[in-house]
Design a binder for these strands. Structure first.
Lengths: 291, 291
DNA sequence: GCCCACACCG
DNA sequence: CGGTGTGGGC
């Protein structure tokens, strides 16, 4: 026991009906005000720690979901985060991927695996419950090139996510699916749709995979409040001035089940962190819900 | 001509008698006050630019000699240095070594080679004249291990420096030899002499090589003013707390010919920069001379 | 421990 | 462009 981390890895599913912990937190009186939640692809939590800690201090979210932490669990910088008064759970690997939740109150058990038994799995998935809401934090594979193996893995990842949601997330449950989904769903969700027909984040198969995975369960919460073009969460570093010229992609999402659509108050992209020194290539997507 | 750098590389020697430029500057009236000169092993001028620019602004030296710039000439960050109002000449290579002078007034021609013809030579040597004083900036090889080829190269480097000085620096000329000489000359010049008998920077052969090179020409200016132990210019990053515990080495020097010994007013090691964020493993050695 | 180069990735 | 790991140097 002394050698295991405090956060247990569970492979069992969380059900809205069966879980005593979810029942108890749904039953207990809610604190006042709103429930504020955000998602951010950090592209290295170590390099982005100053930006993240500043943002947390200013924005005071209940939960921040992070992707691309790019760090193994024993190297995760939890001390400065906890020293700033936050709780954190994480699931990482060397160099690539890696997901985390930073929160005001501690998470209980979290699930770190999309696949029940697979030691080889990439660290792209983290599920936990917070104040009775199921939170699914994913970093979906980017896909490299539509002709590649990696693109097939991406498409399969969506199929497997759909299966997971069917099995584990009842549509009437309060749940949020969030993170970097690496798909721009429509032509208004990227600067240059015409030139990106074969891009792994806009190719028709990727868009249909996302659509299939969402169908009947998930609503793109940003589009509940904003119908217009030009709202992006990612601007590629390899194109100089992409952010300044707003040549970006909307590939980070907060998806909600119907109960969360009902509770949604506000949702916005906070572009300021993208303009700071040593920024991530992504920025924060933030929403507030009725408690 | 368009492809050559503005600073010409000369392989000819500078003589105290024959050089018209040295004669004219020695004849012309000197500005008032003192002549302030410093040396600093930066261990990457790119990483140390903030520390160097801050130090220059505060200390206002006439000349700062830098070693281990670790940058090729076409990548040297001269713009921010010139933008701060300084002149700079440099001689570098990829990854290793590299020397430079930053100065209030521009240098004229500088010499970048210890060896007359050797395209393979490492960038460890820079000679120029400033206000009638010959300045020789060297980054002497460290020597790795006393059993190694590199150590033999270090010993030979001292022999070749001695030859250069015999041929090019008359003892009655105003001249300063400065830089990282990678030798602690006596037992009070390093924290742990007993444990470093076989260290390439304290081994008897290295100390004798330095002594031979100095003999009859060069005076260790720091020891003109300070006879005691515990004064160091380098503290190894690999020993945690070395600087805090003052476990260091005095391996950076300002050496003077007799005319410069006469003119020496003050000399000190400025330890403050070694305690800053992202420091070099060395710090600045500074001296003031009568003009 | 902190530099550098290089190779890989998005 | 800006992350990561690796390997080498001091």
């Amino acid at each position: 026991m002394a050698k295991t981390t405090k956060t247990k890895i569970k492979e069992a599913s969380i059900s809205s009906k069966a879980s005593p912990s979810s029942k108890s937190s749904e039953d207990k009186p809610k604190s006042s005000g709103t429930f504020k939640i955000a998602t951010f692809n950090a592209n290295s939590i170590r390099m982005r720690l100053p930006i993240i800690l500043d943002w947390l201090k200013k924005e005071q979210p209940d939960v921040l979901a992070i992707q691309e932490t790019k760090v193994q669990d024993h190297e995760f910088p939890k001390e400065p985060i906890e020293a700033a008064g936050w709780n954190v759970v994480f699931h990482g690997q060397k160099s690539y991927n890696g997901v985390a939740f930073i929160s005001k109150k501690p998470f209980g058990d979290v699930i770190k695996r999309l696949y029940p038994k697979d030691a080889e799995e990439q660290a792209r998935f983290l599920v936990g419950e917070y104040e009775g809401v199921l939170l699914i934090n994913t970093y979906v594979p980017q896909g490299f090139d539509i002709e590649s193996e990696k693109y097939q893995y991406k498409l399969k990842y969506y199929v497997d996510l759909k299966k997971y949601f069917q099995k584990n997330i009842p549509t009437d449950r309060s749940a949020l699916w969030m993170g970097d989904l690496n798909v721009a769903p429509t032509e208004i969700d990227l600067n240059n749709p015409k030139g990106n027909k074969d891009h792994p984040c806009y190719h028709i198969d990727a868009r249909q995979a996302l659509e299939e995975t969402m169908k009947g369960k998930w609503t793109d919460l940003f589009r509940e409040k904003e119908k217009g073009p030009g709202h992006y969460t990612f601007w590629d570093m390899r194109f100089p001035g992409a952010f300044q010229k707003n040549l970006g992609w909307r590939i980070d999402f907060l998806m909600g089940t119907p109960p969360m659509v009902e509770r949604l108050q506000k949702i916005w992209i906070d572009t300021k962190p993208r303009g700071l020194e040593k920024p991530s290539d992504h920025t924060f997507l933030v929403a507030e819900f009725l408690r």
